[in-house]
């Protein structure tokens, strides 16, 4: 047996490991964004601050962000200052999706730390969240002028993530508008 065949199993193993790494990595981002470039799902839920029922048509200011948050979500507090910054510098409007939460607790929290949202949708049973494929909080979606989901981010929205994932898409949307 020659030398080359000795190393064949090792070579195969390396190929397998590299293959699995690239394949599984790609898988992750692919599988979790089935709703990308699809219409934002319709819904009929109450506002957080009053009992008024709202639907997709009440999300007037597009393009905008939809941010999934809750009082039980610690990571949401981490991204809160950045959401306030986006609002105060009026870079983009943000709608909130209050996810599986207690209405009073949620309103109290917003009173205390500030409300970055145009309005929040009160999704106690996670109905709209399921339609969006949400499986935790925080999550952030970018919805374009036609109500189509363009970006989805699972986890804390940091300035870095904003630059990498959202800003370029948003400026392109604004350019197309002109």
């Amino acid at each position: 047996m020659n030398r080359l065949t000795h190393y064949l199993p090792l070579a195969l193993f390396i190929v397998l490991v590299l293959g699995l790494f690239t394949f599984l990595d790609r898988e992750e981002s692919d599988l979790r964004s089935v709703l990308l470039n699809k219409d934002f799902p319709n819904f009929s839920l109450s506002r957080l601050d009053n009992a008024e029922i709202i639907t997709k048509d009440d999300l007037l200011e597009l393009p905008s962000l939809l941010n999934v948050w809750a009082t039980w979500c610690v990571a949401c507090l981490v991204e809160h200052p950045f959401l306030m910054e986006l609002k105060n510098e009026s870079r983009i409007k943000i709608y909130g999706l209050n996810y599986k939460d207690d209405r009073n607790k949620a309103l109290k929290l917003l009173d205390r730390i500030g409300d970055p949202y145009e309005l929040s949708i009160f999704d106690k049973d996670g109905k709209l969240a399921i339609d969006l494929g949400v499986y935790g909080a925080p999550e952030t979606f970018l919805i374009d002028n036609e109500g189509i989901i363009r970006v989805r981010h699972v986890g804390v929205l940091t300035p870095e993530v904003w630059e990498q994932k959202f800003n370029s898409v948003l400026s392109k949307l604004k350019e197309d508008e002109k």
């Binding site: 599988l31 979790r32 964004s33 089935v34 399921i130 499986y135």
Partner: peptide
Amino acid sequence: LSSRYGDFILYKPAIRKNTLI
């Protein structure tokens, strides 16, 4: 389920180009 959560939640994914491997 799969239109919302993708192939991820299927233990037995459909036979497609990207699941062939």
